[in-house]
Design a binder for these strands. Structure first.
Lengths: 235, 235
DNA sequence: GTCTATACCACGATAGAC
DNA sequence: GTCTATCGTGGTATAGAC
């Protein structure tokens, strides 16, 4: 009496789920560009038109794939931030906020959910994929979470103006993307996956240290450009 | 006796140059994806097959467009770095190296070359374009220059191990991309273009301050993860 | 050597039959 | 819900004119 089949290579689940699974696997392998409707439908063993029927378009399909993985992540991020805020109150530092951003992803990759082992690979793809569809979705889908984290950063870094904080957060988030996109990704993922606590702590601390430095360093005033001007003299 | 024509909307130059100009203009407007062979050849008033004949492929064409603008930039960057190194010797700081990376772009945008005014727009596109072709070209084309700058950073930051420096440079360069890709781009470009020295100094100093902070902050040791561990306790 | 006309194949999307 | 047929557009390849 096997009404719920064990997951096999080609799932016996309904068409919609089969399409989602196939698209997700192909997306992790090669990103959005290297992914055609004909490939997806062939892998999922459904008809070419099925994607358009169930999701409306290729863009909508990839957004459904992204949402299925990112929604729980964002939930955990918000949850962890809330718990840290209530427990620490005014003692909340920007390091804590950064932890609330990074730790849930590591945690989820170790859960016992269906594709948890591939989760960090998926996350790396999603955050670094060059296609406009993926980037737009990440941005808009992040808005709510980012707004919540922005407020937390504001409280942790009251000495920064709103504009300055936005500037530096752009800087710091870009830096994270740079790390993920660069050659360090594999090493990071390996450490994240294999690390038994020590590596994880060390690497997270490392990332958070660099980010905190950029978030906390005081800016020179408009008149305080001695170094720059003196260099100009040399040229 | 006008053998050298004044630049008009549709140049009377040879086919190859006309294609390059048309592709460059369209690239600045909408990026690589929003750019088709049929659009390019129509704008350049040449046959569709001309691109393939002269450049081999659409990818090769865009690489030629990129090289025409970026080669002089890299030359100036290396030149400025060399001059700073010879003048400052062991007193070279990482701020100076960063200046050698950023200032040439600002300088070139104010030169009297044909399309100098559009240069920063072009640069913004080139460094943030999501397409794989553009990114790969930028990366590989940068390798020589980046290697040279990496050595300069090594001398300016002898306390960092090679691995650590590589990690932090990825971080810092990703941050720069984040700034360029984010909503700050327009403001930056505007300041860069309009600024008469004060704004330029201030913004460059601002960027360089954040980067220097991330490059110079000491990392906690492997055992020194108190903050992190204490936070873990809370959750 | 240059340039043109044209054919080719893969893509995403859609209408309409079943 | 599912399928087939087909459309428009993309990059590319080539035969042949000049």
């Amino acid at each position: 009496m096997n009404f719920t089949d064990a997951p096999t290579r080609v799932s016996t689940a309904d068409t919609k789920t089969r399409i989602l699974d196939a698209a997700e696997a192909l997306f992790v392998s090669g990103g959005f560009d290297a992914l055609s409707m004909r490939q997806i439908t062939a892998a999922a063993q459904v008809n070419l038109a099925a994607v358009n029927y169930h999701f409306g378009s290729k863009d909508a399909l990839i957004q459904a794939v992204l949402a299925r993985q990112l929604d729980p992540l964002h939930e955990q991020r918000l949850d962890m931030l809330t718990r840290l805020e209530t427990k620490l109150g005014v003692k909340l530092q920007c390091e804590h906020v950064l932890i609330a951003m990074f730790l849930p992803a590591v945690r989820m990759s170790r859960s016992e959910a269906p594709h948890a082992d591939r989760f960090l690979q998926f996350l790396g793809r999603a955050y670094t994929d060059p296609s406009a569809v993926v980037r737009d979705f990440i941005d808009t889908h992040y808005l709510e979470v980012l707004g919540r984290f922005f407020l937390a950063f504001q409280r942790a870094l009251p000495e920064l103006s709103i504009d300055d904080l936005a500037f530096r957060l752009h800087f710091a988030m870009g830096a994270l993307s740079g790390i993920l996109a660069g050659g360090e990704t594999q090493r990071l993922l390996k450490e994240f996956t294999q690390g038994q606590g020590d590596h994880e702590s060390f690497l997270l601390t490392r990332l958070i240290t660099l980010m905190t430095a950029a978030l906390r360093v005081p800016l020179p005033g408009p008149q305080d450009t001695h170094l720059f001007d003196s260099v100009i003299q040399l040229l």
